[in-house]
């Protein structure tokens, strides 16, 4: 079943087109990867879908979520959608948290905005969410700067999955992490996706991240989709020269994933 259907999406900065009429579908529960070198318009496309574009950018086209066009949503509908159905994970985990507030306060505010729960219930839910990404509940009272990069990214994943969204848009969530933390976060995301059954729109410039988890792959170049299809066909028989050059540029299995290959899942979450 189609969850999100992007149709002929265009994003312009004034007269300059940044995304040039892309179309793709995300099915319920699938992992769709968008790859392309930096500057190819991946983030801009993802922001357009969540109506998060910078004020100087304008989006045209359609983004149908369960048949309704997100680009036409009013402020109230948008707030509800963002809170409960679509969530984001960003590359810059440091910047994703307000430095003056504890991790817990971010959860608290979020839950308060969307649910009628008692203070104790909110706290419990937040601590459970932290545990579900392999963090100690004590992190609730910590400030962002007191956590490591991997821990912060885990917290933002916990926050993103808190309301059981149907679609998670992850914009290079591992690009700013060292390769071991990155591999762990990636595996955590895959696990949680399995558990919750959410769809994943996973943006990356790194083919290694795609090999393992993706179901579908979209290749973007200069604001256009140059190739799309299921993982096997794109990786095994790339049609476009650009895809082949991306594959040539990507090293095969990295040392990090080699390292992680043998260990058991119980250690996936340790830092």
């Amino acid at each position: 079943m189609t969850l999100l259907s992007v149709q002929n999406l265009t994003v312009q900065a004034g007269e300059v087109p940044l995304v040039k009429g892309i179309s793709f579908d995300v099915q319920k529960g699938e992992w769709l990867a968008i790859i392309g070198q930096s500057g190819s318009g991946k983030s801009v496309s993802a922001s357009a879908i969540g109506r998060l574009l910078a004020p100087n950018l304008k989006a045209q086209g359609k983004a149908l979520y369960n048949g309704k066009d997100i680009l036409q949503f009013g402020a109230k509908e948008m707030r509800r959608l963002r809170g409960t159905s679509i969530s984001y994970i960003f590359q810059d985990y440091q910047g994703s948290f307000t430095s003056f507030h504890t991790i817990g306060r971010h959860f608290e505010e979020f839950l308060k905005a969307h649910f009628k729960l008692s203070k104790a219930q909110r706290r419990e839910m937040a601590e459970q969410a932290l545990e579900s990404v392999g963090l100690q509940p004590e992190m609730y009272t910590r400030y962002p700067f007191q956590l490591s990069g991997g821990q912060l990214q885990r917290s933002s994943i916990a926050l993103a999955l808190l309301t059981k969204p149907d679609l998670v848009i992850a914009d290079e969530p591992t690009a700013a992490l060292d390769s071991i933390s990155a591999a762990k976060v990636l595996r955590l995301l895959a696990d949680l996706q399995q558990k919750t059954g959410c769809a994943m729109l996973f943006i990356t410039h790194d083919l290694r991240h795609v090999r393992k988890h993706a179901d579908q792959i979209i290749v973007m170049k200069e604001g256009e989709i140059v190739e799309k299809g299921d993982k096997q066909s794109v990786l095994d028989q790339p049609q476009h020269a650009y895809t082949r050059s991306l594959m040539a540029a990507s090293p095969s299995l990295s040392a990090a994933s080699q390292l992680l290959k043998g260990d058991d899942t119980s250690c996936v979450y340790c830092n």
Binding site: T84, G95, S99
Partner: peptide
Amino acid sequence: QKDYITMAKINGLSEWRIMWKHLFP
């Protein structure tokens, strides 16, 4: 422009809250 504001928006916080609780400090 920074992500924590985007994040606060995504989390569905009201503009008022974002302005005074997240930006103001």
